[in-house]
Write a protein that binds this DNA or RNA. Structure first.
Lengths: 217, 217
DNA sequence: GTCTATATCCTGATAGAC
DNA sequence: GTCTATCAGGATATAGAC
């Protein structure tokens, strides 16, 4: 956080940091303004409400990440030409822009927050997430469906859903894997984590189609 | 919720329901006692604090689920005898006890809450989760490592971590997959969801070992 | 065990001086 | 744009009658 940043910017950056570390509900406007060395009234002057500040925190970061995802997917599909893009490349286009930023000091807090945002009860935030990810889900599902053309569309959606879950769990609390593995796993190795995640998810996506469970008559 | 249940039980059941639907921080003691048709002071009489009530909510449900997981794993390993247990059976032992309960009216709310509990900032809750899952993680990691004996221990931990993420994302909000798939996917088909998840995760677990990304000299 | 009443503190939000 | 002071209400927790 630059000391020379404007009050408005400092408030957004501070809110992001505290949201990521303590949760959004647990973070009061007073704690934000105190940490940002600003006045309590400044939040209402610059944003109007806590909810509006929260929307700024998210849209500011989600837009560049999701734009980069779409750019990468464009490149991947262009490189594949007429044929379907490789799963690993599609996954890299989706995971890379988020995972790579998890070690960028400017982005690390938001990436954790991004892992927790799905669990936030705020209806306004869930609506914003829906808007921000609508295009992403449509484009990536379509790309996956082209490569996995032997699978029903619903199956592709399920598997992409499972992929998102693994990613979210991985970025929401990097220290967790270190704890549960007794120190065996090193979450600071982002390249390694990304490679592992892509290998795992690509294999899952390539799994043979399952019967619905009603089979074997 | 039975009308004849004791005040203490009604408070736990109501807290569970409201926690699952609105989040824990967003749920006040007042809203719990109002919905449970009890007095505000009853919570402090029966539990002493909101935190203590929360611990009751979780330990009451986590213990039977995790006990069943360990029982199923015992059965799976006994059936395998000297050889390593099949991945699909290990996954079924882990996922089944949670997923099956997601359609049990008595358990459905808690299963959703279970999907969100990892994102809760409360240190006391995170400590409880750590205690409740310590044995589970140790036993299942060991079982997976036996079957995946060609993989380094750290890799097994990473992949189990990814499995947990997919499950958590799937159970934390059943309606999400229906929304993002435009109604193509039906989360109420629990047997189908479990089969899909197991097939996806088993394939991921079986993926060839990756180099760390430093490879190809 | 259950109740009323209240203590104490914190929340988001606002009015108005500077 | 930034400040002080304050509002109105909600939060957890407690004391003490019944």
């Amino acid at each position: 956080m630059r000391v020379s940043a404007s009050t408005r910017e400092r408030l957004i950056e501070t809110a992001e940091r505290l949201y990521a570390r303590q949760g959004m509900e647990a973070t009061s406007l007073r704690s934000i303004t105190a940490a940002a060395e600003a006045n309590l009234a400044a939040i209402h002057y610059h944003f109007g409400s806590k909810e509006a500040l929260t929307e700024e925190v998210f849209s500011r970061r989600l837009v560049p990440i999701n734009d980069e995802r779409l750019e990468r997917l464009d490149e991947v599909e262009a490189a594949a030409g007429e044929s379907a893009a490789p799963l690993e490349s599609i996954l890299e286009a989706f995971l890379g822009p988020a995972l790579r930023r998890s070690v960028d000091p400017d982005y690390a807090d938001f990436i954790r927050l991004m892992g927790r945002m799905y669990s936030e009860p705020s209806a306004a935030l869930q609506a914003l997430i829906g808007r921000q990810f609508e295009g992403i889900i449509r484009r990536f599902s379509a790309a996956l469906a082209r490569t996995l053309s032997h699978l029903p569309a619903a199956e592709v959606h399920w598997r992409f859903h499972f992929c998102v879950g693994s990613m979210v769990h991985t970025i929401s609390d990097p220290a967790r894997i270190e704890r549960v593995s007794g120190g065996l796993c090193d979450p600071s190795d982002v390249e390694g984590t990304t490679a592992r995640l892509i290998a795992f998810l690509a294999a899952g996506l390539k799994a043979p189609a399952t019967t619905t469970g009603r089979g074997e008559p």
